[in-house]
Design a protein around this nucleic acid. Structure first.
Lengths: 208, 208
DNA sequence: TAGATTGTTAATCGATTAACAATC
DNA sequence: TAGATTGTTAATCGATTAACAATC
């Protein structure tokens, strides 16, 4: 693949995929760019453009075959296999993620958690909580590529370092500071305080 | 205010604010657009442009006064007062948010949680868990403008309806579906599955 | 066939960046 | 003054949308 699509493009692709699943449960067997666009809230040009970027084609006048389309999108996101993910930090957010049921249907499974506090470690739990020292070995033995940072801000940068040197390639960061990725690592920041602050701004500015 | 700035612009403003707080703890008393830009990872043109949109000005050759700048940014985000926020859904994510310590320093306080399950209700807790029927009265009595959806996907749309009719103006949605805001309501969606899916795509495409 | 839909190119739009006059 | 930095305008860039030929 020569062109790296934008993050926005990939987010739209996820949304198309989700919308297509809904269409399938409704009994559809084909779909037009128009229908899909309306469901997701974009233009039909956008849909066709995004698809063409990935070499996905339909039939002139016949639209897209639903099963085929879902299959291709699933491939793009590696949905053919289960993705194992680790969580670093067994606090409020870490535990919520471990117990969150929504990942299963996405083919994502949190298989272990890591914490510096020995008192939190529980090797025998369904999702074991292990010591930070075990991270590197675990990542290598289990082929882990994705990890989630759920530690306080002061610890986040150091934890990122440990994850990267253990071989983790993608990081979802919940600590309230923007982590920058060293080359070859992808980081998505989810900053809850910033999201609320943003909401507060727009709520107040609309009412002005 | 005539121009509604883009979401990206407001996100940058938050980041400037956070960077400026760090500068202040380091003992700085003034800052140049260049310095701030580098810290946040944007261009100095961007910084000056964003400021000018909000009528924030510095001194030619003298940069920006740090205290004054922080004061103005704090005003934009309503940091002069405590923002009370409610959470709907007392499951994994809801409880994690209630116990999350990071909001305090942002001037945000979760003051109550609401759940349909009577067994989860606890009126006497530090952050009380109340029945859904009490939402409307609580919102009105406490001047709540912001609410967080932390319920399963099937319940999310209905919960949104209850929140909007109770008078909530801004919603942070953690349920894994894109909620669209009725006019006058602002919704920010945080979709954890989508974030991970996104990460999986980029991790796999970089290694190709 | 006539009509509808794709795939792609060209036009538009908005956001970012560069440049530079003003000025401290 | 000479040099540095702002504030703003013009240029650039990338993403989105419109348009339409190809074709089923």
């Amino acid at each position: 693949m020569t062109v790296l699509p934008s993050r926005n493009c990939i987010v739209r692709l996820s949304r198309y995929k989700n919308a297509l699943h809904r269409f399938r449960t409704l009994g559809f067997i084909k779909v037009f760019s128009d229908t899909l666009a309306e469901e997701v809230g974009v233009t039909s040009s956008q849909v066709r453009k995004d698809f063409s970027l990935f070499g996905i084609s339909g039939k002139k006048r016949g639209g897209y075959d639903l099963d085929e389309l879902i299959e291709k999108l699933n491939n793009i996101f590696g949905k053919d296999r289960l993705e194992k993910v680790v969580v670093i930090g067994c606090g409020n957010i870490g535990r919520a993620l471990i117990n969150y049921k929504g990942f299963e249907r996405e083919g994502i499974k949190i298989t272990a958690c890591f914490d510096i506090d020995p008192a939190k470690c529980k090797k025998e739990a369904a999702v074991p909580v292990l010591a930070m020292e075990d991270l590197c070995a675990y990542v290598n033995e289990n082929g882990i590529k994705i990890g989630i940072i759920a530690v306080p801000d002061i610890a986040a940068r150091q934890v990122m370092g440990s994850m990267v040197s253990a071989g983790i390639k993608g990081i979802l960061n919940f600590a309230p500071l923007e982590l920058k990725a060293p080359g070859g690592t992808v980081i998505n920041n989810v900053n809850l305080g910033l999201e609320l602050e943003n909401l507060i701004y727009f709520v107040n500015s609309v009412s002005d």
